[in-house]
């Protein structure tokens, strides 16, 4: 280390004292730079440029594509790529979610009965209902819902067979291709037909004849003849 502290920094300049020395130093010949200095420097600069340029940047250099790509184009391309990838990720997440529940298959009510009963009105009169449906409307809309046992019990009390399986288009196709036409009707529909037939018979029979037929029964029930002794 150079110790400069023991010398007064405010000491006067000693240039006059060393005038001869200074003259000698100034008389030293100039050492010029080599003649090919600029060419050598350019070559080294080019080497450094090539060494520092990444390989992927060379792909888009003007030497290969014959025009210079503005720097903003790289930024714009990167932004578009990010937006596209982000959109793809978001949409692919939606695809992975469980699909919505399928629409309920058509029930037996929606399918028209192949045999139109001629005594629809009579059946309605007999049952005292205006709705031709077998099931309450709320149960009809949901094909996937399990039918309550109460409903089947009620149908059994009425003498109606339990509700048939909901008839989907696939099931309908199976039935039409494999089973005969008379089997096409479900048990429920068959029972309805039978009931309608009974209602038609009731309508044909006069009320008087019905009373006549009941009188002996009433007599029988009310008046019991004592056994012969």
């Amino acid at each position: 280390m150079i110790d400069d502290h023991h010398i007064d920094p405010q000491a006067p300049d000693s240039e006059e004292e060393f005038a001869r020395l200074r003259k000698l130093l100034r008389s030293l010949p100039e050492v010029p730079a080599p003649e090919n200095f600029e060419q050598e420097l350019q070559r080294r600069i080019q080497e450094v440029k090539e060494a520092r340029t990444p390989w992927w940047k060379g792909l888009f250099s003007g030497e290969r594509i014959f025009f210079r790509i503005p720097p903003i184009a790289y930024g714009a391309a990167a932004t578009v790529a990010v937006v596209f990838i982000g959109y793809y990720i978001i949409t692919s997440r939606n695809v992975l979610e469980p699909p919505p529940a399928p629409s309920p298959p058509p029930t037996e009510q929606t399918i028209p009965s192949p045999v139109e009963s001629p005594s629809e009105e009579g059946r309605e009169n007999r049952e005292g209902k205006s709705s031709p449906t077998l099931l309450p409307e709320k149960n009809v809309t949901s094909g996937y819902e399990k039918k309550p046992e109460k409903e089947n019990n009620l149908r059994m009390e009425r003498g109606i067979a339990p509700a048939a399986e909901p008839l989907t288009p696939e099931r309908l196709l199976e039935k039409t291709t494999e089973e005969p036409a008379y089997l096409f009707r479900s048990r429920g529909a068959y029972d309805i037909e039978m009931e309608d037939s009974l209602a038609q018979i009731d309508s044909l029979v006069s009320p008087d004849s019905l009373q006549n037929t009941r009188v002996p029964r009433q007599i029988k029930s009310k008046k019991k003849l004592p056994p012969d002794k």
Binding site: I7, D8, P9, A11, S14, L21, R22, L24
Partner: peptide, 19 residues
């Protein structure tokens, strides 16, 4: 600047002695 001057002076002194 003072340090610079002192270094120059000391250098000159040594150089003068050598020459």
């Amino acid at each position: 600047i003072g340090t610079v001057k002192s270094r120059i002076n000391r250098g000159r002194n040594q150089l003068q002695a050598l020459l």
